[in-house]
Computed example of a mutant assay.
Amino acid sequence: MKKILILSVIAISIMACKDTKKSAQNGSKKIQIPQQEIHKELYGFWVGDFATAEEFEYEGDMNEAVKKLNINIKKITKDTVIAQSVVSGNSRPLIGKISENGTKISFVLNEPGTDKYDGKFEITLMGDTLIGKWNAYKTSLKWPEKEFKLVKKAFVYNSNLMLPTEADYIDWTDHKMVESLDTLEDGTVDSLGANTFYRSASEGIFKINASSTLLKEDDVKNLRKLDLQIIKNTIFARHGYAFKKQTLRNFFDPVEWYVPVKNNVDNDLTPIENKNVKLLDRFTNYAEDNYDTFGR
């Protein structure tokens, strides 16, 4: 019995020593202090054109290849930069580093690589503009390198925002060919070739605001299908919806107030907007388009 008691005391002493040693080791560990955030003045949305070098040099009015890019800088520390890119309706997380050389600030930001269009952004702050290049990880893409110039822009929902009236809203992605015929003096019919007709919007898109006014059937029953689609998507554009469809990007990317922020705004719509979307969808199902010829 005495022997058992001695062994028990020894075992308890050994366990106590281990606990003491473990506590000492834990106490000696360094406490991890979160890194201080820097350059908070750069946080926010940076928006501008995203295109190849050749597309940037093109000065025409119908360059559909130029896209609108939004880089949202969320956090900067000495070792890490956390951001997000939004372009062509595609939202991707970014992580990278900041480097400073005197007054020069540069970033290298990487997309995850899980999407075939992912790549690396190399960015330099020049005055109030972020300029740089994006290189795709997949060099086999049609355009594996693009350039951008971004300025800081706040995003604020405003129900009164409207499309600029000086622009022409023509759907260059949807057309039909109509052959033109001419009857000659001898009665024969000669083909003059085919004309290309594109669907276009009417001035109704500048008069109807589906965010601020509850629409009635009489307001929309005589509109073209493209009118109804533009009025509906202007609601989404006011909320910062990032459009995937080329036609809609052609309409909204050039608009100064439009900032593509996220891929889903369904929960952001107001009760008026929700009702108007349902009305516009119902009439879109039966509306017709107007096609006309335009020079390209």
Rank of each mutant, 00 (worst) to 15 (best):
A11R: 10
K21G: 07
K21V: 15
K29D: 09
Q32L: 05
Q32E: 12
Q35G: 06
I38W: 11
K40M: 12
E41P: 10
Y43D: 02
F45C: 11
E57N: 11
Y58D: 13
G60N: 04
N63Y: 13
E64N: 14
V66E: 03
I73Y: 06
I73V: 15
T77V: 10
V81G: 04
Q84L: 00
R92W: 02
I105H: 05
F107H: 11
L109T: 11
D115P: 05
Y117D: 02
I123T: 11
G127D: 11
T129I: 01
N135V: 15
L141T: 00
E145R: 03
K149H: 03
L150R: 00
N158L: 08
L161S: 10
P164F: 02
P164C: 05
M177C: 07
V178L: 06
L181E: 15
D182V: 13
D182P: 02
E185Q: 07
D190T: 06
D190F: 15
L192N: 14
L192C: 04
F197Q: 10
S202K: 09
E203N: 14
K207S: 09
K216S: 11
D219R: 03
K221F: 07
N222S: 08
L228R: 02
I235S: 04
Y241K: 06
F243Q: 04
F243W: 08
T247P: 01
W257R: 12
Y258L: 04
Y258A: 02
V259C: 06
K262G: 01
D268L: 13
E273K: 01
K275S: 08
L279T: 05
D281S: 01
R282P: 04
N290D: 08
N290T: 12
R296P: 05
